[in-house]
Nucleic acid binder design. Structure first.
Length: 424
RNA sequence: GUGGAUGUAGCUCAAUCGGUAGAGCACCAGAUUGUGGUUCUGGGUGUCGUGGGUUCGAUCCCCAUCAUCCACCCCA
């Protein structure tokens, strides 16, 4: 006998009832994003490899060792998207969006792919919900975007959530800070962990993030990026904070927050949580400004800001188990015998055409088992169809919550169901 | 890529100091001769992850391997 097939490591099936919880998240995002003016864009899952090398950055781990890259039959190098921002930027440029509208707000949802070790809340195929806004460089937009995330997580009931914000400066700012940081750390390099010794050369800003206690102690009085910002960045950051305060959105300035992608400029942010046993994967969503990327990819100079939500992580933090998100069933029809099932199926079909959610028991099992299943499915109403009902056309519609029954005629079922559902 | 833990019934797990294994949940039936959420009773042959080794004999010991989970790294 052949071995049964198994899924690819790090790539999971999403099945009921979990999918109901995902749908709730997606529905909530759609509603919240719509109120903030975001419209859905659906870029392809596959792009030319070069796009991610240029957009995400050659020095990033994502490009360096995590991409699913392959040759197609025409020998072109293609890559499964490891994130949304580069592909959406490509679409923004390719469709000349800058000439069509002054401000573009897009959101997307879908799988992204990174070849990494799987861990809590992190998989090789995982889902992101992504928002990008193009054409606005003003800091109030940054605050609006962060405020939207705050509203989203509140609507989802995910708590507690902390919004961390920082400003990593523009080119010159970051260069100067990097020098200052290297100058500060180099004399103490012997005390750093092995990873940080490497980071000192490859990405000094990341040393700020290290979780090793000795490194944290050593970096306690390290220079802050915020002291190395130019006037423009400083003013921008001040307005972001003032606007968030005006919105009533709580936030924490975290000078050590440095994102791992190369393209960020100015404002960066992330939302973390202690909910959901996420362990070390406590970042639910992260993003920031990337005012240079559109131009660097060959488009018109266009400021932009965006974020990516980790869907699996967010779902893990949503309250209630998956079953509690399952859709309600209005009516369960229990049927006995072949003729009863035909009648039940026909009645159910008519009700469904009228918008009622109906489940019919098609199996040949006793009424006890049928009612037990109706209860398990949380059906609000039940109808039993046996020999006497078929013979007389009379039946009893039962409200499961209080066990009350109403005598009805099967011909009047639709009206009776409507009345019972309305009574609630 | 590094380190740790775990792999036994559909699910969650137990047990056997080496003699081929059991409970809860779920499912079906009955008590209640046509009616659910609480009870009670009955109903389970599962390559004990896979391959090798030790042994009279391995689910248990040893080695390897795969998978899952967790931590690091990195990131959403």
């Amino acid at each position: 006998m052949a071995d049964a097939p198994v899924s690819v490591r790090g790539m999971n099936d999403l099945l009921p009832p979990d999918s109901s919880k995902w749908q709730h998240l997606e529905r909530t995002c759609r509603e919240v994003f719509a109120r903030f003016g975001y419209l859905e864009a659906r870029p392809p899952v596959v792009e030319h490899t070069e796009l991610f090398v240029r957009g995400v950055g050659e020095g990033s781990d994502i490009v360096g060792k995590e991409m699913y890259t392959f040759k197609d039959r025409s020998d072109r190098s293609l890559t499964l998207r490891p994130e949304f921002t580069a592909g959406l930027a490509r679409a923004y440029i390719e469709h000349a969006m800058a000439t069509k509208e002054a401000v573009t707000r897009w959101w997307s949802i879908g799988p992204v792919f990174r070849y990494e070790a799987v861990n809590t809340g992190r998989y090789r195929q995982f889902f992101q919900i992504d928002c990008e806004a193009y054409g606005v460089g003003e800091p109030t937009l940054d605050a609006e975007l962060i405020g939207m995330l705050h509203a989203l997580y509140a609507a989802l009931g995910v708590a507690p959530v902390t919004a961390l914000i920082n400003n990593v400066g523009h080119g010159d700012d970051r260069g100067r800070y990097r020098e200052a940081l290297v100058a500060f750390v180099t004399p103490k390099a012997d005390g750093l962990c092995g990873d940080c010794k490497r980071r000192l050369v490859t990405n000094p800003l990341r040393i700020l993030d290290c979780k090793v206690a000795t490194c944290q102690a050593l970096m306690a009085d390290a220079p802050s990026i915020l002291d190395h910002l130019g006037d423009a960045a400083r003013a921008h950051f001040a307005t972001v904070q003032a606007t968030l305060t005006a919105l009533g959105v709580p936030f924490v300035v975290e000078p050590r927050l440095v994102r791992g992608l190369d393209y960020y400029t100015g404002t960066v942010f992330e939302f973390t949580t202690t909910a959901g046993n996420l362990g070390s994967q406590s970042t639910l969503v992260a993003g920031g400004r990337y005012d240079d990327m559109i131009a660097e990819l060959g488009g018109p100079r266009t400021p932009a800001i965006g974020f990516g939500i980790g869907v699996e992580r967010t779902v893990l933090c949503m309250p209630g188990d998956a079953a509690s998100y399952a859709p309600a069933i209005d009516l369960f029809i229990a049927a006995m015998g072949p003729a009863g099932r035909v009648k039940a199926t026909a009645l159910a079909h008519q009700l469904r055409l009228a918008g009622v959610t109906v489940e019919v028991e098609h199996r040949e099992v006793g009424f006890k088992a049928q009612f037990r299943r109706a209860d398990k499915l949380a059906a609000r109403l039940t109808l039993a169809l046996g020999e006497s009902e078929l013979a007389t056309g009379a039946a009893k519609l039962k409200v499961m919550a209080d066990r009350s029954e109403t005598a009805i005629r099967l011909d009047d079922l639709a009206a009776a169901v409507a009345t019972a559902l309305a009574a609630r």
